[in-house]
Design a protein around this nucleic acid. Sequence first.
DNA 1: GCATTGACGAAGG
DNA 2: CCCTTCGCCAATG
Length: 137
Amino acid sequence: MKKEVKKITKSKKANPKEEKPRIKGEAKAYSFFQDVFDVVRQIPKGRATSYGAVANYIGTKLSARMVGWAMNSAHIAKPKVPAHRVVNRNGMLTGRHHFPTPTMMEELLVKEKIKVKDNTIVDFEKIFWDPAQELTL
DNA sequence: GCATTGACGAAGG
DNA sequence: CCCTTCGCCAATG
């Protein structure tokens, strides 16, 4: 149950319509959407990262949810964002259901020599790629 | 304008 | 050790 924990809901829009997937080319107003996409695109093959790591790199580590939410627009973003390389901190392919086909995500991972077992990346910590660590911002 | 939800994460029981 | 709960930020109904 959700209970009425938060009834206030800040709902204060910090960013005015910055992300507009409908418009192509003139998306100058960068937002965490673009940041997430950019970071995810820089994930080397055979590697994977977690939403929390990406969020941490961007600075919104406290809200790893936003990363996942942003990935919802990833399938609209171009060039295509390798969202299959982004999983939760458990290494579980939680977002596989959002792909064109639920099997596409693990198939892509397997193609990159990433072992997937029971919807979870094997040796996730080994192939883990931390943008904040690798990119050294 | 308020309540609910979400491809998460960390902490508490 | 497994399950439940809170926190975050933005969007959508």
